[in-house]
Write a protein that binds this DNA or RNA. Structure first.
Lengths: 340, 340
DNA sequence: CCCTCCTTGGTAAGCGCTTTCCTAGTACCG
DNA sequence: CGGTACTAGGAAAGCGCTTACCAAGGAGGG
């Protein structure tokens, strides 16, 4: 691998000069030298060693993002927005998949610290696990203390700025829609119990029930894994226990798609016999039959905001900034009034 | 940020000792010192600077992967397999999205070289653009010359080892299925013309036509973008031009889903009036109605193989190794015999 | 014509770590 | 008890780059 010194030697100048030319430093350099050096760079196919640069400059540049899984469309969207902004300011994005394992998140915070990341973006739901939250928080605080910036997407119990989607309102919109259509016996397929996303959405659903003078009994809530298979399984369990449900609210679209598949296999018509609604408005929501009524979250935008938040230091140092992102009901064909 | 020297100072030992303890070097260290150092590490929340380590060790560790877009399920699957293997051997994976812009690929090769990546995995289709191919190849060769390893997924015109999915056979399987069912007028919705993936799949389709004593006229091939919207648009164009098609083969599932949506909107029954087949067997293929007949590629496996290939130096230096991954027809409900 | 000031390029001191080589201390043998 | 052979820890030389500081030379003014 060609080094700065090699280039300097070939061009017959000092390393300092090469460095200045290659990085476009403010220091003026004679045109003749400049060309000679550039020619040497080209000849040796010189590319500066990013690690050495980082070490010498000692100012961080990369941005780390910790998600449950990038291949999940939810995080893919967020990551896309995030990458756009980061790339615009010439920063490398390091993507870390925790696969919903809390310990992995801790490891990754450490790794990003080791990588001298300028900021860590924590995307995805938090866990209801106080011990873990405390540990993570203390690790984050250490990172912050050494100048690291932190932004969190979709949870709020951590240090650092936050972009929070309005999960509670989203749940409310879904509940309001179903109760408004006249449904009375509604089953809910929630995500993992320990995720705050899950509980927030349920709280919204409950509030809608209350507003419609109904209630949502705990036995009608089944917990899944936010994936398709668990959606189908949960729907089966729900229908077996409560055969006369008229609507099922799945708390994300993947599970809703699973519900749709199960209902089809049992010959249950949607929405004529049972209405189904999802959450997140993933691309798939509009591709299934019937197209899914769901709640849209501005995911790309959320990713972009998180980076922006992380990169621009808070004007005044008073406390973390929080940006709320609103949820929106997308009405499609999978929901309708219950059969009389 | 605490440094090695800080730890050494706090523990009252030399930096060398701390380094040895922290990295678990082979050199034996007295237990008492060891504990004192570990305590200091804990107290200062010391994490070694990865860049400094890299520089000092001067041996590469990260793996770079260049894909069109990770949020595309096709690449998401590949990346997942790749990450698994890479993480097992303690390597950082740097994901680069080219968004199908050739220049971006060149930039990323440079970036990965700067990052001292141990290997570059090039995933996704190549381009039919000789100038570009030559440039990329020369950049890759420079990288290779300095000890970088290269593996390529799904194309073969480059230096380095390759994992190639059998696109041609996949196309053949699709064609064989449709012609075998009795279809005679088949429309094809291909991907971008300049991608080798597209042309390989078409070649397979043509071979199947020949084997069935038919042919596939160029006017029945429309080129899309591998995304849903272009699938729908292409299907519309195809049907307007050739109203009596009995089958449409989309060369990936996203476009097939678009086709399905368009047909539904026009009230065309699938597969009774028109059969539809896709390619890739993305998760969505089994979620749409009717579920999509398609061709499965072992994507996760391909990602994993690519890393393995890249990391283990070829036993004998004779030429790049090529691993073929077989395609498999997945028969679902979207294809059937043409209406008599 | 001399002195000063500015311009341009070079010198060298790190950035935080690893690792080779060395030294001092200990154990063991004759 | 003296000498050899290890052993455990430290000193220091880089890894490839940036940048503060310095020096030399030329221009311009008195």
């Amino acid at each position: 691998m060609a080094t700065l010194a090699d280039v300097a030697h070939l061009a017959g100048v000092s390393p300092a000069t090469v460095s200045r030319i290659v990085n476009g430093s403010s220091k003026p350099v004679a045109e003749a030298l400049r060309l000679r050096v550039l020619a040497a760079v080209e000849e040796l196919q010189y590319v500066p060693n990013a690690h050495a640069q980082l070490l010498a400059r000692s100012h961080r540049s990369a941005i780390g993002v910790i998600v449950h899984d990038v291949s999940d469309p939810y995080f893919a969207e967020i990551t896309r927005g995030l990458q756009r902004v980061a790339t615009e300011s010439g920063r490398l994005v390091i993507i870390c998949n925790s696969y919903r394992q809390p310990e992995k998140e801790l490891e990754y915070v450490e790794l990003l610290r080791a990588q001298q990341a300028a900021a860590i973006i924590l995307a995805g739901s938090g866990y209801h696990d106080d011990a873990f939250t405390t540990t993570l928080n203390s690790k984050l605080r250490v990172y912050q203390a050494t100048g690291g910036r932190i932004a969190v997407i979709g949870r709020h119990e951590y240090v650092g700025d936050a972009v929070v989607p309005d999960n509670e309102t989203g749940g409310y919109l879904l509940g309001d829609e179903l109760y408004g259509l006249g449904h009375r016996r509604i089953g809910v397929i929630a995500g993992p119990k320990q995720l705050t996303t899950t509980t927030d959405r349920i709280v919204g659903l409950r509030r809608a029930a209350r507003d419609h003078q109904r209630q949502l009994p705990a036995r009608r809530i089944v917990y899944g894994d936010f994936d398709r298979a668990s959606g189908a399984a949960a729907a089966a369990a729900l229908l077996d226990a409560e055969p006369n449900l008229t609507a099922i609210a799945a708390l994300n679209d993947s599970m809703a798609v699973g519900v749709l598949a199960l209902l089809r296999s049992r010959g249950v018509a949607v929405p004529d016999e049972v209405s189904v609604v999802g959450f997140d408005d993933m691309p798939i929501a509009s591709d299934v039959t019937p197209a899914l009524t769901t709640v849209r979250l501005p995911l790309t935008e959320m990713g972009a905001r998180a980076v922006t938040l992380a990169l621009q230091p808070s004007a005044d140092g008073n406390g973390p900034r929080i940006e709320h992102m609103s949820a929106e009901l997308i009405r499609r064909e999978s929901s309708g009034p219950p059969r009389p």
